[in-house]
């Protein structure tokens, strides 16, 4: 019975994490469209349910009842695997996100490395989908996204090193607790900006949505997908965006910690603060989508390699020498 109860407990915990994540992905799609519409002085989806909140559910229902078409000349196994990989990778990363000091599914030592690894694996769903479709536009989209995601991962990695220098641990809870006195967004503000822009590129959001640039590539790597498989790509993409927002909130905005350490604020559970910070970052994501025009491909590569990488490397040297000179290096 012991083993069974352990398994049940774990399954219960996982469901308790994943169901809210999936529901919030649906809600976030609605929020994205709503913010986008308001910037352009439109109403956006406001018909289904109160304020149009159930729009995403209606869309999901539509996708479920659509036919799944598999192109006859495609590589069928990889074609079917691609959306599954995207979706799975977007969901397994949530295992290490701490919602409070104790509410975390897997409190592992190398939490931030795990997050980084999973987000860097995300490119495979896109490459597999693009290659297996055996069609020109998806292939071009996949190649673009491979180059783009690999380039921006480098600067995200260097930014993470910046934060780790100040923390002295790879555990996500330690990173949150190290921000008790001051959020890292204040001393590392340029890094926060670079992280935000790199996160846009990493999740293929506008203005860096070249892999699915509809003016050039129809829908990029998703062109041949239909029905539920297309919806899974879409869900995985938004789950990834939420994940990058959560990563930003944990690395720079103090994670589950309340903004001011005063009595009425500390009563609010950590999960609420984390969700609010994720929402704040997500609204920024949505605003950027509405405001900024798409980058050209060479400009994108130039920004990644010639601007962000040197800047973040210089900042690593600065942070390290500052911490060393003032004897602030975290030693345990």
């Amino acid at each position: 019975m012991e083993y069974l109860s352990i398994i049940f407990q774990e399954v219960y915990k996982i469901l308790f994490l994943l169901v809210p994540v999936l529901v919030s992905v649906a809600m976030i799609v609605w929020l994205d469209r709503r913010v986008w519409a308001f910037v352009q002085k439109r109403q956006g989806p406001n018909v289904v349910g109160p304020f149009g909140l159930l729009q995403s559910l209606a869309d999901a229902l539509k996708y479920i009842f659509k036919e799944i078409i598999i192109p006859s000349s495609s590589n069928k196994v990889i074609f079917i695997l691609a959306p599954i990989v995207t979706m799975t990778l977007a969901l397994i990363a949530w295992a290490v996100i701490p919602f409070s000091a104790t509410q975390v599914l897997a409190d592992i030592n190398v939490g931030i490395l795990y997050l980084f690894a999973v987000s860097s694996l995300g490119v495979y769903g896109i490459i597999m989908g693009g290659w297996a479709s055996n069609s020109k536009y998806p292939f071009l989209g996949a190649i673009r996204s491979a180059a783009q995601m690999v380039s921006y991962e480098v600067s995200i990695g260097v930014i993470i090193i910046n934060v780790l220098l100040c923390v002295g641990s790879l555990n996500l809870n330690d990173i949150v607790i190290a921000q008790q006195n001051m959020w890292f967004v204040i001393p590392l503000f340029p890094m926060f900006v670079i992280f935000f822009i790199s996160a846009l590129a990493e999740t293929n959001r506008p203005p860096f949505d070249l892999p699915e640039a509809e003016a050039e590539l129809v829908a990029g790597y998703q062109t041949e997908y239909s029905g539920m498989m297309y919806a899974m790509f879409w869900l995985g993409e938004y789950a990834n965006i939420l994940l990058m927002c959560a990563m930003g909130a944990i690395l720079f905005l103090g994670g589950w910690m309340s903004p001011i350490d005063v009595y009425p604020f500390t009563l609010v559970p950590g999960a609420i603060w984390l969700i609010l910070k994720i929402l704040l970052l997500f609204i920024l994501f949505a605003l950027v989508k509405a405001i900024v025009p798409r980058y050209r491909y060479d400009q994108l590569m130039r920004l990644g390699w010639k601007v962000f990488l040197p800047l973040s490397l210089i900042w690593v040297v600065l942070t390290a020498s500052y911490l060393f000179y003032f004897n602030l290096l975290p030693v345990n």
Partner: peptide
């Protein structure tokens, strides 16, 4: 290993 070999 995951980050360097698989991811890049």
């Amino acid at each position: 290993m995951l980050i360097v070999y698989v991811g890049a």
